[in-house]
Each structure stands twice: as C-alpha cells, then as structure tokens.
Nucleic acid binder design. Structure first.
Lengths: 124, 124
DNA sequence: TGTATATATGAGCAATTGCTCATATATAGT
DNA sequence: ACTATATATGAGCAATTGCTCATATATACA
C-alpha cells in the first residue's frame, strides 16, 4: 500500500474531493484524444434516425439506392448523400450492376454493435 | 413458394431492381420512426469525443464535476452542460455530498454497449 | 448518337450542436 | 449574515449537420 501525496498537486483552486484518484487517472491517461474522436465518429454515424433506418434495412438485405429511397420515403439525393457518408466510414459498401448500385453493410463489428444495441434497447 | 406480383406496384418511376423485396419490407415496416429516433438518440449521446471521454472515465469510477473538468481539460460549465445532457438521457446519475456532486453511469445497457464497442474498435 | 434512367455531387440554407461568458443556486465555514 | 466554494443554467455564437435543388456522371437502349 502506497501513500499518495495530496500536497503534490498545487493549483489555483481548492476542491480536493477525490483529487488523488483523478491524478492517478491522469497519470495513466488511458484514452487519447484520437481514440475518443475515433470512437465518437462511429457512434455519431449511428446517431441519426435516417442512418439508423438505412443500417437496419441494409442489415437485412442488400438494397439499391432507389429502394432505400422508397423505404425511407426520402429523396434520392438525400439517400445518396447519407450513403456516401457511411461509405467514407467503411460502414457500407457498393456493388454496381448496370445502372443500379447495391449497398450493403461493410463492417461486421459495426453490424454487431448495431444489433446488440437494438437488443439492449428493447429492454429500456 | 409463393409468386409475388411485381405488377402490383405502379408508380411514377421505372426502377424495378428489387422492388419486390422492397415491398415485402414495406409491408412489414419492422422499424418505426419513433424506434429509429430512440436508437439514434442513444448513439448520438455517445457520438461526441467529450462525452466519450466522460463515459470512459465514469465507467472506471464515480467522479465529481471538478475532477472531470480537470481530466478533460475543459471548463466547469461545459462539463456541467454535458452532464446535464447525459443525465436527461439517464446515461449518468448524480450523488450529492455536501457541496460536491458525484456522477456515475446510470445504465448497464449503455455501459455494456460502450465497453463492447471499445473492444470492437480495437480491431479496426 | 440521342434519350431515358440511376446515381453522385456541389451549393445553399435552416436547424442543431458544443462551447464560452455571465450569473444563479446551494452548501459550508466564519 | 457574510464569504468562499461547487455546481447549474441561460444566452449567445461559430461550427456542423442534414436536407433540397440543380446539375453532373454513368449506363442502357433505340
């Protein structure tokens, strides 16, 4: 058991509630800015109702832009923009057949996270 | 095996790529607007670097506002605002002791989703 | 080659977000 | 009661978001 020097920290204010533990955490930062940004980026991609529906449908079957547009009752442009966004994050991938482009999920991890969360949220 | 009437759908445009399946999906909507909004709401809460860090630290131990402020290198007001946001979603809860308020995670499901996702994202 | 269909993309715009600043509230100590 | 500390909150503002509209690109077919 080591004793921790509370006096080691000297700054402008007075709160010492659990300063000790905070310092311990600070000394092992454990999560970097880049990691936090990366994690947030993925969650943010799933954090929009339109994209939730898209991923929900794509998780069931490959769909073309037009059909997604119909299913979501949204303009083709809006759908294409969202698909572009998801594709940039490698959440979704394209398969072109003639004029039409089919989209499907591209990432097993994200798919699992999505499905698990769906399950969790049933019980809330 | 049932045959599906493609001709049943008659609307303004021409794409019939997989219209049949789309209609099948449409006939069982399976995901409502409210559900999509609810799911997105949760993901959105996790979709910001500041909140990711907060949840990451709080998942390790209960912390007061001041210490979170120190850990995140952010102003107390910004931290309080974010905590308020997370509290409204029942992701975080308060425990008041004298002048200081301790925050901790309030939802096992969200905690699990967060940890699992953290694990998944290690392998990406 | 010309036309129609399917998708992609840039610009613009209203709504939302995440912060800061100032200030309010709550509690403890004198 | 007065002061200091800890947290909460409203207003404001710059940045981001998610759509629409117009238009570009790609492919199929006559």
């Amino acid at each position: 058991m080591e004793k921790i020097e509370i006096e080691a920290i000297e700054d402008e204010d007075t709160c010492t509630c659990i300063r000790v533990d905070s310092v311990q955490l600070i000394q092992e930062p454990q999560i970097t800015e880049e990691q936090a940004v990366g994690i947030a980026e993925v969650f943010k991609a799933l954090g929009d109702p339109t994209r939730v529906k898209m991923i929900y449908y794509l998780q069931q079957k490959e769909l073309c832009v037009h059909d997604l547009s119909t299913l979501l009752a949204m303009g083709q442009s809006a759908v294409s923009h969202q698909l572009r966004y998801l594709r940039d994050l490698h959440i979704v991938k394209r398969r072109k057949v003639g004029k039409t482009v089919f989209y499907s999920l591209d990432d097993d991890h994200i798919e699992q996270i999505f499905i698990q969360t769906l399950g969790h949220l049933q019980h809330m």
